[in-house]
């Protein structure tokens, strides 16, 4: 499993990747001069309910949001192509002919992409920390552990998203994975507002449809949990970790099932 992960991570050693990191770091530093997301939203608006509870927590810096988007994009690009390229080139048959099971193969790939995603995010955070601490760039100063932890909470979304991406890559190939992951994320964001609007508006606002939508919201990941103030500490934070792990586990199980049922010779 570790060997497979290592094998995948080796692909990161490309000059284009380093160049991409420099550009990403510059973008993050410049966007960090904008106000945090929670302070850009009008009080009492729908989005203020989506991001903020009644607890006062440290804000998520704008630079962190951009760092997360970059991490998701790069991880998705890599995640979409890893398994389909192994299937297309027949490498997967070579690997599976060794004493490596499908489970270990899949887990190895998953761990590699997760590590890569978090490494990118951590690197960008380090750049933001240095630019804030030593160059004074950024609206919110990075001056406490609480602040640092708060920036990493939204990054938990990488765990389920990468699993979703891998599942779609087995189902639909590299391009299909990118498209389906993007669509899934967009639907997830839209559906995430369903419980919120149901809590804000009176019952029966959209007759019959609200019940259907409420059931449908279980099928999608809720990205709002990762950004809401209440999930920044204590029990909700623990629940968020379990939520991310369970969602990731569900999609990985689906991936294993797909690996067992897919004809791996088909591409050749």
């Amino acid at each position: 499993m570790w060997a497979i992960a290592q094998f995948s991570l080796l692909k990161m050693r490309e000059s284009a990747f380093y160049l991409l990191m420099i550009v990403a770091a510059l973008i993050c530093v410049f966007t960090n001069t904008a106000d945090p997301v929670s302070e850009q939203i009008a009080k009492g608006s729908l989005f203020s309910y989506a991001f903020s509870g009644d607890v006062r927590t440290t804000s998520i810096a704008m630079g962190s949001c951009v760092a997360l988007i970059i991490s998701i994009l790069i991880a998705s690009f890599y995640g979409s192509s890893e398994i389909p390229s192994d299937i297309n080139t027949g490498v997967i048959l070579v690997i599976l002919s060794k004493p490596v099971g499908r489970f270990n193969y899949l887990l190895g790939k998953y761990i590699a992409i997760v590590l890569m995603g978090y490494a990118i995010f951590a690197f960008l955070q380090l750049v933001l920390f240095i630019s804030s601490r030593f160059l004074g760039i950024g609206v919110i100063p990075y001056n406490s552990w609480e602040m640092a932890v708060r920036q990493f909470v939204p990054a938990l979304i990488l765990l389920p998203l990468i699993a979703v991406n891998i599942t779609f890559s087995i189902m639909g190939g590299a391009l299909g994975a990118m498209i389906f992951t993007a669509l899934y994320l967009i639907f997830s964001i839209i559906i995430a507002f369903v419980p919120l609007t149901m809590a804000i508006f009176p019952e029966g606002m959209i007759p019959y449809l609200d019940e259907i939508l409420f059931v449908a919201h279980y099928l999608f990941l809720n990205p709002l949990f990762y950004f809401h103030d209440t999930a920044a500490m204590g029990l909700p934070l623990t629940a968020l970790v379990f939520y991310s792990l369970s969602t990731a586990a569900f999609f990985l199980l689906t991936s294993i099932y797909l690996l067992f049922t897919t004809d791996l010779n088909a591409a050749q």
Partner: peptide, 10 residues
């Protein structure tokens, strides 16, 4: 748990 924590302050 997360949903309730998010909706409780409303």
């Amino acid at each position: 748990l997360l949903r309730n924590a998010m909706l409780k302050p409303i």
